[in-house]
Amino acid sequence: MDDLSRLSKEELQAILDETEQHIADIRSELKHREEREQHQAVDALELHLERSKVNWGEVKAFFQQVLAELRSGSR
């Protein structure tokens, strides 16, 4: 804070502008990476379609976990 108090208003404004630009660049990079991952996921749509079916074995395993959770809770 001491350093900032010695800077002129113009210098502070310049630092602020630069920081804002950095934040905008980081946001843009994050958005770009997120969208790239989403495009890659869509490219592998066939794999996701396979995972989007009801797997009754997994449903059964889920309810077994629920029962185990209930038993451990009642002890």
Partner: peptide
């Protein structure tokens, strides 16, 4: 219900 059952597979 279908997609809810699908989500249970991620448990």
């Amino acid at each position: 219900l279908t997609n809810t059952l699908v989500s249970l597979g991620h448990v």
